[in-house]
């Protein structure tokens, strides 16, 4: 998020300058070829500094036997990964995937309910849902802890409640956006072409909404996978999530193992993002679709 802001601000400032020298008008949209080249170079530089360098360091640390040794091939090992998987990681991974799956699925249902309700003029609901996303995770977690810390202490359900409050907005936004694009005439055209209500749902509504439903699910799943703020405030014995475990190992002073854990966490999140990218691509360049019927 911060990275994005920095890059956008830098590119924007550059665009302003390039536009101003040419036309004397503040134009952000028309950056000259030279300005564009500098902008791309700056982008690559910032991305290298903020993302590539730390990740290379992370990967090398995870592969090296001990902190302090130079990260050269003769010191490389997979022992850190073995230790990471052997320890609390496996359980936390399973727990996190389950939590992410349940959260994403419930958020879809809640998002659909909210999107339909918002269509029939329940505007306040949308605002309330967005508020859940805007409230800082730490504040939300404390609030959830105070409200349900008694009955739900040390359960995944406690974390799930916080996740639902936080990520409902993501599902709602995605679904209501696609529902808005589903013009009523599209369904009417199906009915007027001889399709019954169920048939129209299956052949027109579902295929049109499917990409955004998959995208909404994947977004919430990925967010839930790497959520740390609320999880670290709400976890108890046996309910630590992956991000919490990574943080814990790092604080215990084992950087090589926590580096290995971080690499695995990143790999899982990236893996979770792949369906999202596929859906996005499919939305842009549609593949073959079976004929109607």
């Amino acid at each position: 998020m911060l990275l994005a802001l920095v890059v956008v601000a830098a590119a924007d400032a550059l665009g302003h300058r390039a536009g101003a020298t040419r036309s004397g008008l503040p134009s952000t949209g028309r950056v000259g070829a030279r300005g564009g080249g500098v902008g791309v170079a700056l982008l690559v530089g910032v991305v290298t500094l903020t993302t590539v360098v730390p990740f290379v360091a992370l990967l090398l640390t995870a592969l090296t036997r001990a902190v302090g040794l130079p990260p050269v091939p003769e010191h490389w090992t997979l022992a850190n990964f073995a230790m990471a998987v052997d320890g609390p990681f496996g359980e936390a991974l399973a727990r996190t995937v389950v939590l992410g799956t349940v959260t994403a699925s419930l958020v879809l249902v809640l998002g659909a309910v909210a999107a339909v309700a918002a269509r029939s003029r329940a505007r306040a609901l949308g605002t309330a849902i967005t508020l859940g996303f805007a409230v800082p995770g730490s504040a939300l977690a404390v609030a959830v802890l105070l409200a349900y810390g008694g009955p739900l202490r040390d359960t995944l359900a406690l974390i799930l409640v916080a996740y639902l409050a936080k990520f409902w907005a993501l599902g709602h936004r995605q679904l209501s956006g696609s529902l808005d694009r589903l013009a009523p005439d599209l369904v009417r055209a199906a009915r007027a072409s001889g399709a019954g209500p169920v048939d129209a749902l299956a052949t027109v509504v579902a295929p049109i909404l499917a990409p955004s439903v998959v995208a909404a699910w994947a977004i919430v799943f990925v967010f839930a996978l790497h959520e740390l703020t609320m999880s670290s405030l709400l976890y108890g014995p046996g309910t630590a999530t992956l991000a919490v475990v990574v943080l814990g190992v790092q604080q215990l002073g084992d950087p090589t193992v926590s580096a290995a854990l971080s690499v695995l966490l990143t790999a899982i999140v990236v893996a979770g993002t792949i369906p999202l990218l596929l859906v996005r691509r499919a939305a842009v360049r549609p593949g073959p679709v079976t004929p109607a019927g």
């Binding site: 072409s193 399709a195 004929p291 019927g293």
Partner: peptide
Amino acid sequence: AEIVAYPLRRA
């Protein structure tokens, strides 16, 4: 082609 075939398939 699928759009125009749609009502025929429904029939």
